[in-house]
């Protein structure tokens, strides 16, 4: 649920038709994202549901995926994660922190001249495995690495 959309709707209800039209326009863009944004995956709380939404249930582990992350991260609010996939034809890389309230953190679609490498920083609530899920040539591969967290970064 998007609280901003709720408040907009409430506001539009009280005001004139012009505002309703504007709100309707905003709602439409909201739906347009929903089509591309993996809502089911990002809102699932269980690792199994995330894997399902990515079509990665029972995917094989691959040694060609390298997760670069600290063994121990002192601050869970900023955990640097880099994923390198040496699998040819890498199309998509997802980063999942298994024990986060919402495990799926990010999905990267690689296209054109993009290389199978992404680097970002995520929040982690507690010590857990970080998974990299790579789609390449219609197949799905995974890799994981444990990251220990001293102070959680979700509160």
């Amino acid at each position: 649920m998007n609280p901003y959309r709720r408040s907009l709707l409430a506001f539009a209800g009280g005001a004139g038709t012009l505002v309703i039209a504007a709100a309707a326009g905003l709602l439409r863009t909201g739906q347009a994202w929903a089509a591309t944004w993996n809502k089911a995956g990002f809102e699932s709380k269980a690792m199994a549901d995330v894997m399902k939404s990515l079509g990665a249930t029972g995917a094989a582990e691959s040694k060609d995926i390298v997760i670069t992350a600290p063994d121990i991260a002192e601050n869970g609010a900023v955990v640097p994660i880099a994923v390198t996939s040496r699998i040819p034809g890498t199309q998509q890389i997802s980063i999942v922190a298994e024990k986060n309230p919402f495990p799926l953190a990010a999905t990267f679609d690689v296209a054109g001249g993009g290389e199978g490498y992404v680097s970002t920083r995520i929040k982690m609530g507690q010590t857990s495995d970080v998974w990299a899920i790579v789609k390449a040539g219609g197949k799905v591969f995974t890799a994981r690495k444990e990251v220990k967290i001293t102070v959680g970064g979700c509160g």
Binding site: F102, A106, T107, G114, E115, V118, T120
Partner: peptide, 20 residues
């Protein structure tokens, strides 16, 4: 070259690195 979807789990003032 890169189309990303993010959740709220990405850190504040996000960093993104890639190679083209």
């Amino acid at each position: 070259v890169l189309d990303t979807q993010w959740s709220q789990a990405v850190s504040r003032n996000p960093f993104l690195g890639l190679r083209v």
